[in-house]
Design a protein around this nucleic acid. Structure first.
Lengths: 242, 242
DNA sequence: ATCCAATCTTTACGATGTAAAGATAAGCGA
DNA sequence: TCGCTTATCTTTACATCGTAAAGATTGGAT
């Protein structure tokens, strides 16, 4: 018994749970007087440590490398430790997505501050949106690509809701009308959906490399940001935005 | 040895590879004279059968259920059989995505035929786009959500390229200008990217349930299709499409 | 007819998510 | 201070997955 798992885990380079410097023999050492950095059995702030570890793994190994066990390894705890804090993989991903939405909202907020002209104000959010996704593609993937997300979790629900509210408010300000929380006209909804779809779609296509075909056919050295700008400002041929 | 896997596989309800009716004892029966539907060792058209099985699994169990082994089970062959035809999971998904793009292109083509007025012509493609995604959410997910896709595979590359060409042509027709294959002006590229981003973004948000918040705040009984229509035709507040 | 190469099955292995049980420590009432 | 309770973390176990390698089978070329 215990063959498959034990062997697999033991074959790893870094043994399993070892958070601090510690000799092999000192493992079963109880709280002897010489307790310095003896890797306490109880981490103390494992939840936060796991979230930070998850973000690190995500940036280093991408979405495919972001597994429960990899996160536990990164944090230096046993592979089952995350369970107690997040329930399952969906839980961890959902909380991580919430972190992402909070980062995203902060970036959105500070982007609008520096804008002066109306045109700048109109372009600031979309640019910041795409810039965040490009700077944190893994996070953006977690937030928008994954089906393994539980939006009933309060932290994720709130953070995502705040993001949506920010968008709705920005659209409302641009249309110079108050957008109430509980009811929308068709035109208001259409304006919000249009803005969101446009920027989200552009971001997804860009991250997926689907826009390469267009970008390389454009005048030499046209960046994605420049294309986005043109997308938002270039005159439309018909009365339709398409 | 052979413990974990053997036991696991044997515990399944349907033994493994058994495509036709066949008694247990008749398994090692060679090509005796009584060969009727004896489950030939060589399937004959396994590649196509696997693709169809994959599509069935995708519709039944969603993206999460679409595994190499599940597809093999569905097709009634051993779990390693797909390897020879597709190499690995990426290969199978890529070929399946190619099938999806061909379906998609066909749907796109027939959608434009029935349009008469200019407005109808402008709305036909976007509507067909979203309609396909809603009818085949799994396929659309494979085609656009998955990072495990190998676009260097000729079949996928061609099918996706054709899809892109269709879009570019439609935009060109709407702008009443010829769009050449090898070079684009910034405005042309912007028009294509805008149309694609808009519809793709809308579709993704819709499939992810992200638009529910908007839809339920809209006047009673507003459908997603109606919102899309409004998105594409409602007057924009500023000169910008956002 | 015979041999070869393509096709399919068996077997095996490492990895993952998750459940269950054991170990440890911190908090708390007496 | 002592002992109990409970939260936290580790061990062990298992089903499943993707993939590699080796064996079985067969269609077809020579």
């Amino acid at each position: 018994m215990a063959k498959t798992d034990t062997k697999g885990e033991a074959a790893r380079s870094s043994r399993a749970p070892r958070r601090a410097t510690q000799t092999a023999a000192s493992r079963p050492a109880r709280r002897a007087g010489s307790a310095k950095t003896e890797t306490p059995y109880h981490h103390g702030a494992l939840r936060e440590a796991l979230l930070q570890a998850a973000e690190r793994v995500l940036e280093r190994d991408g979405l495919a490398g972001l597994t429960l066990r990899a996160v536990a390894r990164e944090a230096g705890v046993s592979h089952a430790a995350p369970t107690h804090h997040f329930g399952d993989l969906t839980g961890l991903l959902s909380e991580l997505a919430a972190v992402g939405f909070r980062q995203f909202n902060a970036a959105m907020g500070s982007a609008c501050d520096t804008a002066t002209t109306p045109l700048e104000r109109a372009l600031a959010r979309p640019k910041a949106y795409v810039a965040y996704a490009q700077a944190h593609p893994g996070m953006y993937g977690i937030m928008f690509r994954t089906e393994r997300l539980d939006y009933s979790r309060p932290s994720l629900h709130e953070a995502a809701e705040a993001s949506f509210a920010g968008l709705a408010n920005a659209i409302g300000a641009m249309r110079q009308e108050q957008i109430s929380g509980d009811a929308l006209t068709l035109n208001q909804g259409a304006a919000i959906a249009r803005a969101w779809s446009l920027v989200h779609g552009f971001t997804m296509l860009l991250l997926d490399g689907r826009l390469e075909d267009i970008l390389e056919r454009l005048p030499e050295g046209t960046t994605a940001e420049r294309l986005l700008e043109a997308m938002l400002t270039a005159p439309v041929a018909s009365k339709l935005p398409v």
